[in-house]
Simulated assay, not measured.
Amino acid sequence: MSEESPKSAGTRARRPRRAVAPESRTRQPTEVRRRLVLEAALPLIAAKGVNDVGVRDIASAAGVSVGTVTYHFSGVREILSEAMVLEIERYYAPLTSAMRETPSPADGLRMLIDALFTEDTERHWRLWFDYWAAGNRDEEFARRQSERYLDWSEELRSLIMRGRDAGEFECDDADETAVRFVALVDGLALRWIRGAPPLNAEAARCHLHRFLASELRPR
């Protein structure tokens, strides 16, 4: 058996190791990797629209491999669905909590109106309308969207009824008033995002405050 020379042994010892992707070096829990993908997808979908965002785009933004994305999600539409749940929880949870804790229901509704249309909520509405459009082609999307609307309408109905019981509102039918309010919010948001015809956030808030004054006649 021939002996290995010190030179060749040293060369072998100094041979560089194969590069390992960061995600492979530190194995993160499944929920952490899923959240990482969703957080990266939100601004992409809001900026480009769900139809113009691919799995590779999301993987690149998240700093993970395409395989990691496809392992955890079936495709961009599933990512949109779960990202929208994350967005709704982040946006509405603190808002609805503040509405419930406000002693005056009228003040709670005014606070809601002012929070719906700001320069910071444009991304939220773009995501929402992408999610809305997906419901036209996917029954599961439509079902989840219906649940979101029911939750949203119930929060409004409860606030309106609380105000009526406290003598702050005049309202014959809280359910119908909530339906009209939600429809007006959606219509104003769509016009604001599309810009056709032009509408800014301040004007949208003014329309909603006028609705509040005419429909509920707060005292």
Rank of each mutant, 00 (worst) to 15 (best):
L86G: 00
H72T: 13
F73S: 01
T96I: 07
Y92L: 09
A93R: 04
V69L: 09
V64I: 13
T70R: 15
E87P: 01
H72D: 06
V69E: 03
P94F: 06
I79M: 08
T70W: 05
E89G: 12
Y71R: 15
V66Y: 11
L80T: 11
A93G: 02
V66P: 01
V76D: 01
T68E: 13
L86E: 04
Y71S: 11
V69D: 02
A93D: 05
A62L: 11
T96D: 02
S81M: 14
G63I: 10
S65H: 14
R77L: 13
S81N: 10
G75M: 04
Y71M: 12
V69P: 00
G75T: 08
E82P: 00
A93S: 07
Y92E: 03
L86M: 13
G63N: 03
R77S: 07
E87I: 12
A62M: 10
A62Q: 05
G67Y: 15
I79F: 03
H72V: 11
I79V: 15
L95A: 08
A62C: 10
I88H: 01
A83C: 12
R77V: 08
T96M: 01
L95C: 08
R77I: 08
G63P: 00
S81L: 14
V69F: 04
A83Y: 01
A83V: 11
V76I: 11
V66C: 06
A83N: 03
E89C: 08
S65E: 12
T68K: 06
M84N: 03
I88P: 00
G75A: 07
S81C: 10
F73Q: 02
G63C: 06
Y71H: 15
E78V: 13
E87G: 07
Y71I: 10
R77G: 04
E78S: 13
S74D: 15
R77E: 13
L86T: 06
R77Q: 12
G63L: 06
A62K: 04
E78H: 09
S74A: 15
S97C: 03
Y71W: 10
L86W: 00
M84P: 00
T68M: 12
I79K: 03
S97N: 04
L80Y: 05
G75K: 05
Y71E: 09
V69N: 04
G75R: 04
E78G: 12
T68R: 07
I88L: 08
R77M: 11
A93M: 03
R90P: 00
T68P: 01
Y91K: 08
P94S: 05
V66W: 08
V64S: 00
E89S: 12
V64W: 00
T70P: 02
E78D: 13
